[in-house]
Amino acid sequence: MSDTPKTSASSLACGEPQSGSRRRFIRAAGCAAVAAALTGCGNLTTEEFLQRNFRELDKKELAEIIARLEKEYTAKFRKKVTVAATPPMPGVVFGYALDLSRCIGCRRCVYACVKENNQSRDPQIQWIRVLQMDKAEGVNVLHADPYYDPPLVPQEGHFYMPVQCHQCKNPPCVKVCPVKATWQEPDGITVVDYNWCIGCRYCMAACPYGARRFNWGEPHLPPEEINPVTEYLGNRPRPKGVVEKCTFCIQRTRKGRYPACVEICPTGSRKFGNLLDPGSEIRYVIENKRVFLFKEELNTQPKFFYFYGV
């Protein structure tokens, strides 16, 4: 299958595909102005409008885009914000395991994720959802409550099941994206190019785990709360109208660190590592513990495993 992304809806408005159009920059810029008028994307700059899909960018283009984004974010948040495009490590496919016998539903992971990954505080966006389940029912989404709020957890007769992106090996969200704004990287992380996403939300409908979030409103992130170490395909600030999701903390894990949710969990329920390394803790879990896949029958082949550690 070709890797070339289809032209975005906004560029179709010009009646001409984008690739190769830089030669006639003036004409393209004029076209952009027309397109902006036609499609209502008036707040896009010409550079943004002409920007190609992340996977088509050459080194120079990428460097220019990163410089532009860093400048924009630094001005907006009034502190130095860096944007990296760290490549995947060779020989690494990430896997995650969560110990259902230990999670107490304290939601520390939810907020550590929001902080690390610069989710909008208002309107609220959270990538991790912790489901309170009935012990009598087992894993049954019809008996799941994400809004539980007792004074103390865990509550008698319940167990807790945090859900986030399962980084499927066979991801339905990637299949349905009409513009190829989302794809699976060689290390198994499914990412989104926020500059290419057209906001159609097909991926959200396709995801059986409810793991994708849409920026319905202008995301609000107080400057004092921003994590300034960002990744192009990860936690950089998102614009309104695009979809976002868990990336296994791509900005941390591609540099060897554990994801933020792993490090915050007070019960040590969260395990992370390289599925290709036979000595990793993730492989130990898979080989020695009772493991199950959520909605396994859908053949999404998640790289997120639930297990019983006791």
Binding site: C106, D149, P154, P219, K240
Partner: peptide
Amino acid sequence: HFKPLKPLPPPVPPDQIVAVEGGR
């Protein structure tokens, strides 16, 4: 025995999320 903890706040239900034009 691991001591119970106070959970952090639950998510805002979708019908209570209000997007303000131009952000807050």
